[in-house]
Amino acid sequence: MKVLMKGNEALGEAAIRAGCRHFFGYPITPQTELAAYMSKRMPKIGGTYLQAESEIAAVNMVLGASAAGVRAMTSSSSPGISLKSEGISYMAGSDLPALIINVQRGGPGLGGIQPSQADYWQATKATGHGDFQVLVFAPSTVQEMVDLVSGAFDAADRWRMPAMILADGMLGQMMEPVELPEEGGHTSIDKPWAASGHGGKREHNIINSLYLTPDKLEDLVVERYKRYEQVQAAEQRAEEYLCGDADVIIVAYGASSRVARSAVNKAREKGWKVGLLRPITLWPFPTDALKKAAGQAKAFLTVEMSMGQMVDDVKLAIDCRVPVHFFGRTGGMIPTPGEVLAEVEKLL
């Protein structure tokens, strides 16, 4: 039978079942239940739970564990992710996989503790300094949080890059029924690059992000971007809901996509042709699905819990072929289906 779990706890259990035995964290609302869950579970299964002295320390412990070839993760909420951004950049520069979970809250600064999606730009454009990307997954239900954790670990390993799950306080705090994957059923791949001890049988591996020779560094970055092109071709994911005949398509992810889905249902009751396109990956952005939808819709409306950080990505994906409008709330406010419906009505 399905069990009721908080999103934060479900993320933790899913990570364990995906083979993660190394969690390094630091408490922050609204993410703390995830760290608390790991602190209870990890010692019982021979894993490592460590509450570091700071977010910066925690993310660098993840870097070290990942370099040794194990599945490692950290989690935090918005201000804490800013602190982790240095380590995330170092991991990207060292081609290391890892899972970073951001249970977003309102910002900027210490902001607030209520749900937000205002770290979209940070996650998809500038998770740290330098030329790099991280995989970004955006679950919209507790079940999808569970499903995406193992997928994020697998993708991070496959592409040798950090992966982020971009959740928010609503998803982290809410409980929904979940079906957990079997224990021990996860996949794992060889990591011949890991600094895990070689017993004198091979050359030692070096894991590093410092390259003082510009042409060498350029080569590495260009090589990495070729890999990113493959990632963009292979990893885009989106869900379409009633888009087939839609005149107006709402684009929304995560918590705001749930509000948007309610609005679409209300719109359909009125006979309005409205659909929802829900990005599941935010990087790579599901450009292909949007391009396809742009052939049908007369207008797009992004619904976000931010000041409209996703709008430009939608415009670029569809080459500005149809107008892209925006409705959002920010600072920890959650839009209501009624508010979204009123915006949709203006576009019909």
Binding site: K2, I113, Q173, M174, E176
Partner: peptide, 22 residues
């Protein structure tokens, strides 16, 4: 609220439970 949610789950309904926090 959790008891109500679980009763819904046992009945095979779709359910969600969202707390205020802070």
């Amino acid at each position: 609220g959790k008891v109500a949610a679980y009763a819904g789950l046992i009945e095979g309904k779709e359910i969600s439970w969202l707390p205020s926090y802070g």
